[in-house]
Design a protein around this nucleic acid. Sequence first.
DNA 1: AAAAAAAGAATGAACGTTCATAAATTTATA
DNA 2: TATAAATTTATGAACGTTCATTCTTTTTTT
Lengths: 192, 192
Amino acid sequence: MALLQKSIEKRMALLKATLNLVNNGGIQGASMSKVAKLANVSPATIYLYFESKQDMVNQLYLDVKASFAEAAFKEYDPEKSVKERFEKIWFNMADFKINQKEEASFLSQCDNTPMIDEETRQEGLKFITPLFDLWTKAKEDRIIKDSSPYLLYAFTIYPLAFLMNMENRKLCQLGDTVLKDAFQAAWDSIKL
Amino acid sequence: MALLQKSIEKRMALLKATLNLVNNGGIQGASMSKVAKLANVSPATIYLYFESKQDMVNQLYLDVKASFAEAAFKEYDPEKSVKERFEKIWFNMADFKINQKEEASFLSQCDNTPMIDEETRQEGLKFITPLFDLWTKAKEDRIIKDSSPYLLYAFTIYPLAFLMNMENRKLCQLGDTVLKDAFQAAWDSIKL
DNA sequence: AAAAAAAGAATGAACGTTCATAAATTTATA
DNA sequence: TATAAATTTATGAACGTTCATTCTTTTTTT
């Protein structure tokens, strides 16, 4: 159906516009009229697709989080060793942060501001349960430390956000060697 | 001078009000009229102390960053070993994030949004040069990996922000044992 | 011709900021 | 030392603008 397709495209255009504006000026920089203009749409039209600005931002958050998770767990091979699986996920996440800069920096903005509903935030957490499951197994196998998933996330994944941030500000460059060093640091922080 | 004192107190009240409001509703939640009301002052009065809202937020950022640095480097003993000195700084920073929750979560919000001028951000970085200097020495002494300060920061200090965030959302608790585990993870990620 | 989708104009509220004026304080004059 | 002038500090109301959202009308699709 061409119409449905058009609707989907318009929704996507709106979310993309929001993403862009939030990244450049924070949530306050993404006014409904600016979003509308950037998406080539009337402000009123937004409300055919979203209940409110809050709803739109929440939906954007979930969409981006889902695409982050999809990237993170792609080519995931349950046959491989625990460490290899973790390594794969880690580099997938790193690639996402490097290549999908807009999406990644939006997520890091969401994670540190009250701009997303707590409920929506909780829902977004579910996307990365495969990683938590892997950690559970890794702990059983005595491959990594017996720490809480929060601590494991804090020291292996979260640092990527900082590095991405620094790269975006041109304060450092995330080449292959730096990335390898970063993974080594991540692994060293949790391995047994 | 009682007058000067009163002025300083009013400035502090304004900054404290801003801190509070930004933490609870982001930069958009801290409107000038709300800040004024919370500080028991007329909106117009704010402009006797600050050029603009941006200026006020920038100054708050620098003030908080300075007090973070002061906390981080207190009781700093150059006689101690490099590792002991790093450990001291790390736990100082952790204590700050645990005990000065408002200040700490404000900083983490600043670090991940476009709400602070790049120039002001640069100035804030200077406060933690002692840590960078220590890392330089630690690298010379072959005690830690030869990584960029950004990478070292990403894997040792930045994770604290995540853990604090989780604690503030009551998703985890930062007791003494967790903190010790966290330091071990931080150290393991960079030690040689 | 009917229904659905989109538009632009308009809504009241809230924004950051400025204004003219009032209160408080300091300085100068007696 | 007391008082008047001058200066500083603070105010509440008002500024123009922009905000998120809604209303009415027009366009597009069925």
